[in-house]
Design a binder for these strands. Structure first.
Lengths: 201, 201
DNA sequence: GCCGAAGTTGCCATGTGCGCAAGTTTTCCC
DNA sequence: GGGAAAACTTGCGCACATGGCAACTTCGGC
């Protein structure tokens, strides 16, 4: 007797569990030993799978470490897509960000610690940036929708809006991580978005 | 009898030559065989040094490939530093960019081809981004100078300006590479800078 | 010219990415 | 509920990359 909605199914659930286990193993090993002193083998071991299986899920350590960030980004992208179609691009972006960040009050301190760890390590900078780059593509696609069919999806305007939006979020996060006590992340980000978005509002 | 200026000296010149040889070997091999079908050994061979020596110059293939871009960025940074101290940050940024890009007329078609090759290849995206990230740090430092000692160099404003500036240049380049015939790169970039900079002008 | 510093090279250990070919488990359909 | 097909895991093995170490060579300064 199955529920009518498309259930994940055992196979899918197992895959998700393995992926999550690998991600979390990677994170806790990185916290314990430092991100550049961990091996794929150690991560796979800690997650209870073979080294070869790790490669079936992630291309490398960095991808496993940033899986969480990647998921958060996709959540934000989802909220963006759910905004009313007739909202202007910048309005939709700010609204989605507010929904996403201010809702969850302040950021989880454990998450903050992990993020700060990642930021400190230059060997992870590349992976960090790739997360943002991937997100930029998704955001740009949504901006293109809102600018109507006349907008060239590879044109400057669409991508400039997406890039500026993400730059504001990224820079705010860096600054907030440096001085966490002063205010909530969203307060910092909102101001940055207002400033950066003056050309698009 | 030596000239009073600090001459490079044979040693330095040799190093520079080797570095350049490695860079160019990497580029032409990448053009010929595709960027992910080349090995460090092949590059070192083509440049006439040992595989081990390659590692003394670059940490990996990507670094060798992007050495050129990196140098161009440093040139732009130099022009930025040479702008008058009392120019506002955004004015200095746009002026430096104009000086840099519009001076050289249109971009060298060979350079364009190489850049397009790099862009097409997702395995190089990470390295690409790192070039920009490194530049962002340099630009931010210069912006901090112009905002005066009151500005927090890790604060939002400084880094937001730097990030927006580079985002505009990057997005313009991508768009221009997609539709090269329409106008010069600088025309595209100038418009993007004007739009993005409305919040900082 | 001679000596110390800087640069090059080979050797080697450790790690990574991925193709292949068994084994296993889950799904699907009768 | 049973059996074939599809999906997933795993061990093995190979090509390549990264970087330490210790000779060896070249350069710069005196």
């Amino acid at each position: 007797m199955s529920v009518p909605t498309t259930e994940p199914g055992l196979r899918e659930r197992k895959k998700a569990a393995t992926r999550l286990a690998l991600h979390e193993a990677a994170l806790s090993l990185a916290l314990e030993h430092g991100p550049d002193r961990i091996t794929v083998e150690a991560i796979a071991d800690a997650a209870g799978v073979s080294r070869r299986t790790f490669s079936n899920y992630f291309a490398n350590k960095e991808e496993a470490l940033f899986y969480g960030q990647h998921q958060r980004m996709r959540e934000l992208a989802g909220m963006l897509r759910a905004r009313p179609r007739d909202e202007s691009p910048w309005a939709a972006l700010t609204a989605a960000a507010e929904q996403f960040y201010s809702a969850q009050g302040d950021l989880d301190p454990e998450w903050t610690a992990r993020t700060r760890l990642m930021r400190r390590h230059p060997s992870l900078a590349a992976a960090q940036m790739q997360t943002f780059a991937a997100m930029e593509r998704e955001v740009a696609a949504e901006v293109a929708v809102r600018l109507g069919p006349a907008a060239d999806p590879s044109g400057v305007r669409v991508n400039l809006i997406a890039a500026t939006f993400l730059a504001a979020l990224r820079v705010s996060l860096t600054a907030w991580l440096a001085h966490p006590a002063d205010s909530t992340y969203w307060e910092v980000a909102a101001e940055a978005l207002a400033e950066a978005g003056r050309g698009f509002a």
